[in-house]
């Protein structure tokens, strides 16, 4: 990490939280996957959270396993918290060349406190790489010709990376692309479809003592819940057109490659249902405000959607 001279930096070695003494008979339990292989975790999504941006979204996957806070002070698992803001369409900077299309720029940044290893303020190589993947995923969905001479900036900030004691530095690039298209729709930029992200993985199944030789395709994997992830795949998927705008595979899936992509597409379709509800709710809220007639059924509808209280940890 390069030194950042403009800010007051923390110690480069990282700031680990104090380690408390554990009970002598305490054994750290590895979380296990309790949901079915084709079941997605529950998602919390809300749009329009940043007033200064033209579009924004907040995306969270609360921890699924019951918290063990009654036994240890430090929570053993963390949730995934991502914000996404869209600025624009705005005029291009003074030195930019004429462009008949919308110029899309994407940034992905982990907050310095997002992961166990403290991140820098300056974007590092992995964050830039994520930004490029996000850009390809979004470029396929935007109708750029409708916005000549303007730029649009998509900024994703990972507030809390999903990791726990069992998952060291694996990185959670899977989820970076997920929230991208969601705020974009909120900003009112022309899209051919709503893009949603999905992840699937090939994992080795089996308990610790028996030999792990069964490969299983799971959607929406949590790395801490599995012993060996052989391959993972991320897609950006347009459901109504049945198109994939971005596919990113890591690891060696072997003969399971097709099933892996299928699984990721299925995960994206599931995530889209939540997205559609959130957008619909935001649009209705906006139209209620603009027409200044507070529909009684508008609030009832909001109750009905997938919103639920966020379980805060830590």
């Amino acid at each position: 990490m390069q030194a950042d001279r403009r800010r007051l930096n923390g110690p480069t070695s990282g700031t680990a939280p104090p380690v408390f003494a554990t009970p002598p008979n305490w054994k750290v339990q590895r979380p296990t996957r309790s949901r079915k292989p084709d079941e997605h975790r529950k998602i919390f999504l809300r749009t329009g959270i940043v007033p200064s941006a033209s579009g924004s979204a907040y995306y969270e996957i609360p921890p699924q396993t019951p918290s063990q806070q009654d036994e240890l002070l430090i929570p053993q698992s963390s949730s995934l918290k991502v914000t996404c803001t869209v600025h624009g369409p705005r005029p291009l900077p003074r030195n930019a060349a004429f462009s008949p299309n919308l110029l899309l720029t994407t940034h992905v940044k982990f907050a310095p406190f997002a992961t166990r290893n403290r991140r820098g303020y300056v974007r590092d190589a992995s964050e830039r790489d994520l930004g490029v993947h996000l850009e390809t995923a979004l470029r396929g969905v935007i109708i750029g010709e409708r916005w000549p001479k303007s730029g649009c900036e998509v900024v994703i900030t990972v507030l809390e990376g999903e990791e726990d004691a069992w998952w060291g530095d694996a990185g959670n690039e899977q989820d970076g692309g997920k929230a991208g298209g969601w705020a974009l729709v909120d900003a009112g930029i022309d899209c051919v479809d709503m893009v949603s992200g999905g992840v699937a993985a090939v994992v080795q199944q089996g308990s610790a003592d028996e030999k792990m030789d069964r490969d299983v395709v799971l959607i929406d994997p949590t790395p801490s819940e599995h012993y060996g992830i052989k391959a993972a795949c991320v897609v950006g998927y347009l459901q109504s057109r049945d198109e994939v705008t971005e596919m990113w595979m890591k690891g060696d899936a072997g003969t399971d490659t097709e099933a892996l992509v299928e699984g990721a597409v299925r995960a994206a379709s599931l995530a889209r249902t939540v997205l559609a509800e959130a957008i619909k709710e935001a649009v209705e809220l906006r139209s209620d405000e603009s027409h200044d007639n507070a529909h009684a059924n508008g609030s009832a509808k909001a109750e009905k959607t997938k919103q639920k209280d966020v379980v805060m940890t830590g």
Partner: peptide, 10 residues
């Protein structure tokens, strides 16, 4: 103008 006729992209 009813609030039910809301379209989503795609």
């Amino acid at each position: 103008m009813s609030s039910t006729t809301v379209a989503l992209p795609g």
